[in-house]
Amino acid sequence: MPGIDECLLEAMRLPGARGAALIDWTSGLALGTVGESPGGDQETAAAEAAEIARLAAEQHAFAPDDDPEAPAAADTELPVEDLIVSNRDSYHVLRFVGSSFDGSVFLHLWLARAEGNLALARIRLGEMAERLVLA
């Protein structure tokens, strides 16, 4: 039953991992960080990652089709599972964490492109996000 730090340290064990953070996308607050921060500043990186996560989570275009109505159950359901941003030298994987209380939290993993395995990272992050809040 991992806490925030154990979860982030586990993410850092993925091949090519440079940094990992758990971020609230409404406020832009990093609830935990391990390793390097993209751009060198943890607070700036968290705020910028929070921007793109919020945009993805709120746009109707990215929401799944099979979502008839039921806004009552909507609090725990995430419209988007993850986001992948790639550049010349690295990947960023943002994985949304479903939580039953009123949270808006995601995991941000920064991977070196040469060593990183995007498919593996995506699967592992999904498992970590689930284990973090489910017993």
């Binding site: 806490g3 925030i4 758990l22 607050l29 609830l31 939580s99 009123d102 284990r131 489910l134």
Partner: peptide
Amino acid sequence: HLPLGALELCHLAALY
């Protein structure tokens, strides 16, 4: 009753 991660998340959220 509660996973540690959920407690920490909720606690930090409530604290801030």
